[in-house]
C-alpha cells in the first residue's frame, strides 16, 4: 500500500524468473493432485452379476423355504383341504385363472386403475404440497387435516363414495385419491422442509430469482423426500384400490383383482382367494422393483446417500 509504506522497498516483490515461476506452479499442481489422490477413495463398483446375487438370492431362498415348509405342513399334518390348501392347489388355481383369462383381465384392470388413480393423485398432490410448503398460513390451516387424512383408512370413504357416485369408476378413483393425495403432498412438504438452508442461501447469493430458486435449487434438493412420498402414495393407491374393489362390485365397475378376491370368497374357493392374494402381493412387489427401487437407488447414489441397500 503506497499510503502506508515507510520505505520505498516495501512495495518490492521478489522477482522470480518466469520459467521458475511456471516450474513452481507445476510443482504446486502436482502436490495438490497428490493430496487429492490421497484423500479420495475410489468407489469399488460391484458388478451387475454380484448385485443380482446379493439382491435377488436372499428373498428367493426365503420364499422357497416358506413354500417348502407349507408343503411339509400339508403333507404331515393333513389338514382339511378346504381350510388349508397346499401350495400345489394354489398354483393350480392360478393356472386355471390364467387359462380362462380372468387373471390377466383382473390384473390389467386393477393396474390400469391403480396407475391412473396414482397419476391423478400426483397431479393433485404435487401442487398441493408446493403450496403447503411455501405458504405458511395454508399449512397451519390445512396441515393437520391432511395428516389426519393420511391416518384415516381410505376404506372408510367407500360407503360415502357409493352413495355419492353409485357403482361407477368414480367411486374407485375417489377412494384411491383420498388415500394417495395426502401421502404425496406430505412427502413433498417433508422433502422441502429438509432442504439445507445453506443451499437456499447459496442460490440467493448466486443471484437466483424466486422462480429459479424454486426450480433449480429447492425442487431438486427436495427430490428424495418427494420420491419417498410418491412411493408411499403408490402403496396407498394400491391398497385403497383393493379395498374399494372388494366392497364396491357390480354396476359399471370393471372386474379387478379385488372383485376376483370377493368372487372367490362367495364361491368358498380358498385356493382361489389365496391365489388372488398372492397375485396382489406380487404386483405390488413388481411395481416397487421395476419403478421405485431403481429410481430411488440412482437418485440416492448420485447424491452419495446410498447406504449400500440392495433391492
Amino acid at each position: 500500500m503506497p499510503t502506508d509504506t515507510n520505505t520505498s522497498t516495501s512495495t518490492t516483490v521478489p522477482s522470480i524468473p518466469a520459467a521458475a515461476r511456471a516450474a513452481s506452479n507445476d510443482d504446486f499442481r502436482t502436490l495438490e493432485a497428490g493430496l487429492d489422490a490421497l484423500q479420495t477413495v475410489p468407489l469399488a463398483e460391484r458388478g451387475p452379476w454380484r448385485r443380482i446375487v446379493d439382491g435377488v438370492l436372499p428373498p428367493v431362498l426365503l420364499l422357497a423355504a416358506l413354500v417348502l415348509a407349507w408343503q411339509f405342513y400339508v403333507v404331515i399334518a393333513q389338514p382339511r383341504p378346504d381350510l388349508v390348501p397346499g401350495p400345489f392347489n394354489v398354483a393350480a388355481s392360478i393356472g386355471e385363472l390364467w387359462s380362462n383369462g380372468r387373471l390377466q383381465q383382473a390384473v390389467l384392470t386393477s393396474l390400469a386403475r391403480g396407475g391412473a388413480g396414482f397419476l391423478i393423485a400426483v397431479a393433485i398432490g404435487t401442487p398441493l404440497g408446493l403450496l403447503l410448503a411455501e405458504w405458511r398460513l395454508l399449512r397451519r390451516a390445512l396441515g393437520p387435516l391432511l395428516s389426519g387424512l393420511q391416518v384415516l383408512p381410505s376404506v372408510a370413504w367407500v360407503p360415502a363414495a357409493i352413495i355419492w357416485f353409485g357403482l361407477t369408476d368414480a367411486t374407485v378413483y375417489f377412494v384411491v385419491l383420498m388415500g394417495a393425495v395426502p401421502s404425496i403432498a406430505n412427502g413433498l412438504v417433508a422433502g422441502i422442509d429438509q432442504v439445507p438452508p445453506q443451499l437456499r442461501r447459496v442460490g440467493t447469493v448466486l443471484g437466483a430469482s424466486r422462480l429459479q430458486l424454486a426450480t433449480l435449487v429447492i425442487l431438486p434438493a427436495a427430490l428424495p423426500g418427494y420420491l419417498a412420498g410418491l412411493k408411499q402414495g403408490w402403496a396407498f393407491s394400491w391398497r385403497s384400490l383393493m379395498a374399494a374393489e372388494i366392497i364396491a362390485m357390480g354396476g359399471s365397475i370393471g372386474f379387478g383383482l379385488g372383485s376376483m378376491l370377493q368372487q372367490s370368497r362367495d364361491l368358498a374357493d380358498l385356493p382361489g382367494v389365496l391365489a388372488t392374494i398372492l397375485v396382489i402381493l406380487f404386483v405390488g412387489i413388481l411395481v416397487e422393483l421395476i419403478a421405485f427401487a431403481p429410481a430411488e437407488r440412482s437418485l440416492l447414489r448420485r447424491r452419495g446417500l446410498a447406504s449400500g441397500g440392495t433391492r
Binding site: 500500500m1 503506497p2 520505498s8 522497498t9 512495495t11 518490492t12 516483490v13 521478489p14 522477482s15 522470480i16
Partner: peptide, 23 residues
C-alpha cells in the same frame, strides 16, 4: 510493518495487483 523479504538474486521494483489501481 514487516521488513520486505527478498527472494532470488535480484530485487526489482514492481507493482502488485493491489497497488496498481488508483485508490
Amino acid at each position: 510493518r514487516t521488513a520486505p523479504v527478498t527472494v532470488g538474486p535480484t530485487t526489482v521494483r514492481a507493482t502488485t495487483v493491489a497497488t496498481d489501481r488508483p485508490n
